[in-house]
Simulated scan of single mutants.
Amino acid sequence: MTKFVDSKFVKKISEITYASYDHGWDERNGGNVSLRIDAADLTEYEDIKTVKKTLELGFDAKPLAGQYFLVTGTGRYFRNVINQPKLDLGLLQITEDGQKADLLWGFEDGGKPTSEFPSHLMTHIERLKFDPTHRVVMHCHPTNLIALSFTQDLDEGHISRLLWKMQAESLVVFPEGLGVIPYMTPGTNEIGRATAAKMKNFRVVMWPHHGIFGVGASLDETFGLIETVEKAALIYSQIGAQGGKIKQSITDDQLRELATAFNVTANPKFL
């Protein structure tokens, strides 16, 4: 029998969560990830055919009815997932009425999905309207980006331009820029709705004084998106450590040339 714990999905999410911890983005039980998996990719696993329990979602996820999600658990440490995936991960299927999720695998010690799972599902719903290949939502706490939320105006155009100008890769990787929501209490449907609304125009959203939400077609792509944003914020922090005086920088014209060279469209509101 092919076991789901040996699947490429469990292996990859275990690697990504450890890498995120190793980068310093997920202290203690900080951070969460969800991966949408197609039913056709699950047919070979015999140990996910029985519903272990059914969980209330607390909001209407009917647009995702029947969809499968591999998600990290609430209160779990990213550094541990790689060694105990059957405890720290769960495979869930959204029920047909969209109000609940059936647990098919994982959380073997009685665990539950991350408290941000409704926020993840809201973002999945929104992104699927724009790009059906998007199947990953990742939330973590990148140090230097969080620091920016204390020292910079919480203006999307300002922060996006700042990050674009820190390195050539930024504009290429996130040409639409960075979405920003006001500070809100995490783990609530309110912050989930605010984040999902931003996902109409962005693939990465800052939660001021807290962290970041990113989406992508794969775990690697989503991790790389957040990694690029955080690298740009790190460079800005290093500039401050070196005295803060910028003698030269990437210009607006050079950003436009960069967009043309890599065939991306820079957010016209920010340039």
Rank of each mutant, 00 (worst) to 15 (best):
R203N: 15
D220A: 02
K231T: 15
R79H: 13
E116D: 15
S149M: 09
K231I: 06
H158Y: 14
K129Y: 03
Q93L: 03
E176L: 01
G31K: 01
V81C: 05
V136G: 08
K269Y: 10
K198E: 14
N267H: 11
G58Y: 09
H158R: 14
F59L: 10
P268L: 01
N29P: 00
L148V: 07
T114K: 01
A39H: 08
V71T: 13
D22T: 07
G177V: 14
V81Q: 09
W207H: 13
I159R: 02
Q242W: 02
I246V: 15
I235G: 02
T143N: 11
K53E: 15
V136K: 11
G106T: 12
L121A: 06
T43A: 12
V136R: 06
N267Y: 06
I48N: 00
K231E: 15
K112L: 12
G106I: 08
L128Y: 14
N29W: 07
S218H: 13
F150G: 00
Y68V: 11
A196E: 08
G31F: 03
T50E: 15
A101Y: 01
T74V: 05
V229N: 04
L64Q: 10
L103S: 03
S34M: 02
T133G: 02
M206Y: 05
T188K: 00
L89H: 10
T2M: 06
D60A: 01
G192A: 03
T260Y: 03
D47Q: 04
